[in-house]
Design a protein around this nucleic acid. Structure first.
Lengths: 211, 211
DNA sequence: ATACTAAACGGACTGCGGTCCGGTTTATAT
DNA sequence: ATATAAACCGGACCGCAGTCCGTTTAGTAT
């Protein structure tokens, strides 16, 4: 398993030019630690930026300088899991990773994403809840590109970009969680419906070449 | 064109038991009028509940008692257009209304919805932006049921409920507007991609019976 | 050690959606 | 006309995300 430059999730660690100042690093750890504590106590939805600042013993400005927004904080908290998932579908073993036929990979991608969303629940939803351009977040762009690429590889040649958007919409955390929590849909049912969807979309097109 | 009981969009007019009090009716009109003014001046996103209350010359509490929330206000503002659209796809002429084969109706439904969203833009987005259960709004439930019904009629028998959810996701105002405004996608491209999607989903299933 | 600068800090402040409750108005019954 | 109760009103109030700016601090050059 490589650790080559995945898509930068967030300024999780000392990246960019120069070093990170000591106090900044200390506060970052303090904040992340306090955030995990609070989420355990109140749930992701119960975490407020004020409580976080107070718990970590820093000013509110510091919280926002570090994470930019509430959604940014949530992304940072998810960044490990996210990087792991990215690693799996980009470099991992088939059928999720390269080596399987595109359709198989699409099916596995959806299943993986469904599992991810159900595992992290509110956290994933809160991370998506950036008021504007939640579609331009690096991770989201990567998923979109990945789906688009698999569609092309599977021989789908009618506007793969838009079709990838439609497929991404299906995997939206808010919708998935709503189906599961409000309507009691099982993860297996979600996966099966996703399988139906992508299978039919890719269609009886020749099936594409494994890669 | 019938005016039989469509799905109640919002408490648009004096519904329910008894009469609406005079002052209440007056204030409702004042508020709707002021809201339209403000949207013309500042756009839907620029409308705040405080500004609205001030402009209408009523207290803030009155605004929320009337509409419940910001999203509720937006829905009320859209209720005429919404009722008209509902009337068209439920009772209007084919291919949107009954009489055409299910697949044709599905295609027409998507096109209609795309047109609707693009026409009302931010207003439609703001109406959807109810923090919780934006999926349980009566109008949304109706669309979902309609799609599900058309899927069944078209011979799709593998979890039409979830598939309707996926298709609804594609028509989400936020996504559609993002594609158009940020990526310059044309309405025609959206419609064509929707056509591809539903055609493939319904698949080479026998095609269903016109109804 | 000292002086200097850029970065980080903190908390008061703003604007927003939404709630609450004591006072007021309207319709109805007498 | 008068009493009564329910519906309605207004605006102070709350919690929250996000911003601003005067102050402090960590590294660096001398």
């Amino acid at each position: 398993m490589f650790h080559v430059s995945l898509i930068p999730i967030r300024s999780g660690s000392a990246s960019g030019s120069g070093q990170e100042r000591r106090d900044a690093a200390r506060n970052r750890e303090l904040l992340l630690c306090a955030a995990r504590q609070l989420i355990e106590e109140c749930g992701a939805d119960g975490l407020t930026m004020d409580k976080l600042a107070e718990r970590a013993g820093v000013g509110k400005g510091t919280v926002f300088r570090r994470f930019g927004s509430r959604a940014g904080l949530m992304m940072t908290l998810l960044s490990d899991a996210e990087a792991e998932f990215q690693g799996r579908f980009m470099f991992g073993p088939p059928p999720l990773g390269p080596g399987a036929p595109p359709l198989e990979r699409l099916i596995a991608f959806g299943a993986g994403r469904i599992g991810y969303v159900l595992e992290y629940g509110d956290l994933a939803r809160a991370a998506d809840h950036s008021v504007y351009n939640k579609f331009e977040v690096p991770a989201a762009v990567l998923w979109h590109r990945h789906i688009e690429h698999l569609l092309r590889a599977a021989g789908f040649d009618a506007d793969p970009w838009l079709m990838a958007m439609s497929l991404s919409a299906t995997l939206d955390p808010e919708r998935l969680l709503h189906a599961v929590r409000v309507h009691g849909v099982s993860p297996e049912r979600l996966e099966e419906s996703w399988r139906q969807l992508v299978t039919r979309v890719v269609g009886s097109a020749e099936g594409g070449i494994p890669e």
